[in-house]
Nucleic acid binder design. Structure first.
Lengths: 333, 333
DNA sequence: CGTTGGCACTCGGTACAATCGAGTGCCAGA
DNA sequence: TCTGGCACTCGATTGTACCGAGTGCCAACG
């Protein structure tokens, strides 16, 4: 464990580096932090901190830069309860009092909000459908060969699936199947779809079976829907265009993003730093995540992605706040 | 007008610059293109082309780089009928034979396809709802205060709108309103919603009016839905991170993207080059667009965004091909 | 007259040396 | 244990020289 002075110095290094992005040296340190010791003393402490793996020197004769371990200690032990500035709290409040769109649109806008507040890229994973119950089921004929299965869930999400029709399936058959489906599915949960008893009519039953199958497979296979916003802000934080490319590439792969966030949460973390993120291309990134709850149940995930030298206190506070409000907002609807 | 040799030289400069991203000089030119003249002659021609605004020198003693006007001439006069490589034609064919998802998912995947084929950022604007007719209308109660209006259109798109309920509106009222709405709206076009006659029941009528109003306002106000993919590929094409940031910023603003594409098409163009794009931040970008048709009617737009030194023939061919196939695919459904 | 070879010139890029300065490690003394 | 002093390191900056790709111009040539 670090004694008090080492901790104070480490904290000062991290804060200074986050601010300036420049390696920070002993003399700068005594000025910025109000340490009552000489640069020489600080140098000794820095040497120890480096030996213990909290800091590194990019080269001899340069100041120190925090390692992932350094950031980790900072986040775990040193992070002051982050308070957002009033303006940003206001922005969040305004957003949630104003927004009245459909779920998807709102989640998308939420990424923009969170990104605006933190100046980082933001990610929102839509509520899973495990707990949602089915409010309405309808089968609508589109063409002669295609029908659309539309399912409205209690959380406001609308699921749809294309269902192919056998040649010459009449509108009445479709309507019959629709009614039969509605009768047996409304009120059920997406995760536990019941078997549906046959009607006796062969063509109708085929259609019903087909529709339920499509619904099941969609529910199993599809990863949760994910929204990303503010990628351009993230770009500003790096100076190598190759780094930006790699991060963008990750953010575009919805499946990867979802797994990534889940992994972090599963490890019981709310912050993953650099190598902890577990993704080669994100070695220079940190991820801050929080689950959000709808009606008391864990529903989805929200988070930000940025450089390891992000402002952790603010990011943590913002993610927590927006997550909570988002949950509340979704619980109302 | 440019004589034949000047045109050949201009074409060679453009092609060479697109290939190498290096200013190209007279001697390199005689080698790469098979011109039967000396470098000195080429220099004279280059000087003229520069005077006429087709080329610029980054500095004295450097080779020439095409201007927007140079690219424009190249695209208009010199572009060979672009043929995609077999592998890419195959990729497109595979994609459309494989995809069976809901419209939105497919459009999103289409951006990935187009981006993969062209190595540029891709954009797809969803079909507008002007021509779509309503296939199904349903009002579903979600909470005690909120209902969801779900409208299925003939093109497979599902529109949804939250509708607030007066305190104590019973499920039967909602069902009544739902049936009434369905009776009068199914078969109509989104762009010309009829007035709905009153039922006589005050609360039901209020609900119906409210729902139709939400539907109208959504249709007027909402910009067309737009999907963007492959932003990371675009990032690789620029070497200034600030440029990348600006382009990303634009691509994230759905409204801006839609207007941009529409503007280009309205000017009768299929390519907008640099300043022609009409957007400060996209001064170093070109945009290739094509409308696509569903059942013979113009429905949406598809395009790519990349550096002005993109491979125009391939980009044009790819956008045209994917646009056509997409239209066909959507017409089937 | 268009084309060409020759030539002086320009200027960005690279290589190299000198210098600067922020920062270090170490040590002797308070 | 802390501190001031000091020699040392090494990236960054500046200056100089030089190379070479490329140019414009011009006189000569077919």
């Amino acid at each position: 464990m670090l004694d008090e002075r080492k901790a104070a110095i480490l904290r000062a290094v991290v804060e200074e580096y986050i601010e300036t992005a420049q390696p920070v040296g002993s003399s700068r340190l005594v000025h910025s932090a109000h340490l009552q010791v000489s640069p020489a003393t600080v140098r000794n402490e820095l040497a120890v901190l480096e030996r213990d793996g909290y800091l590194v020197q990019p080269h001899t004769s340069a100041g120190r830069v925090p390692t992932d371990k350094g950031y980790r200690f900072f986040v775990d032990q040193l992070t002051p309860k982050g308070r957002l500035e009033a303006a940003q709290r206001q922005a969040v409040a305004d957003f949630f009092s104003r927004t009245h769109d459909a779920v998807e649109q709102m989640l998308h806008d939420t990424t923009r909000l969170l990104s605006g507040v933190t100046d980082l890229a933001a990610v929102v994973v839509a509520p899973g459908h495990e707990v949602a119950t089915i409010r309405s089921v309808q089968l609508v004929a589109l063409g002669h060969r295609l029908a659309l299965l539309v399912v409205v869930l209690s959380n406001g999400v609308v699921e749809k699936r294309g269902v192919e029709l056998d040649e010459g399936t009449g509108d009445d058959r479709v309507a019959g199947a629709s009614a039969h489906l509605a009768g047996h599915l409304v009120g059920q949960q997406m995760s536990t779809l019941p078997e549906i008893p046959p009607t006796g009519d062969r063509a109708t039953d085929d259609l019903v079976t087909d529709a339920v199958a499509r619904l099941r497979e969609g529910h199993d296979a599809e990863p949760d829907q994910v929204f990303v916003g503010g990628a351009s802000r993230m770009a500003a934080a790096f100076d190598a265009v190759e780094t930006v490319r790699q991060v963008l590439d990750i953010l575009e792969q919805q499946y990867v993003v979802v797994t990534l966030l889940r992994d972090v949460l599963d490890r019981g973390l709310s912050v993953a730093i650099g190598s902890e993120v577990g993704h080669e291309s994100l070695a220079e990134c940190s991820v801050v995540v929080a689950p959000y709850e709808v009606e008391g149940e864990p529903a989805g995930t929200i988070g930000v992605v940025g450089p390891t030298r992000m402002k952790y206190p603010q990011a943590l506070a913002a993610v927590a706040l927006v997550g909570r409000r988002l949950g509340e907002r979704l619980s109302e609807g």
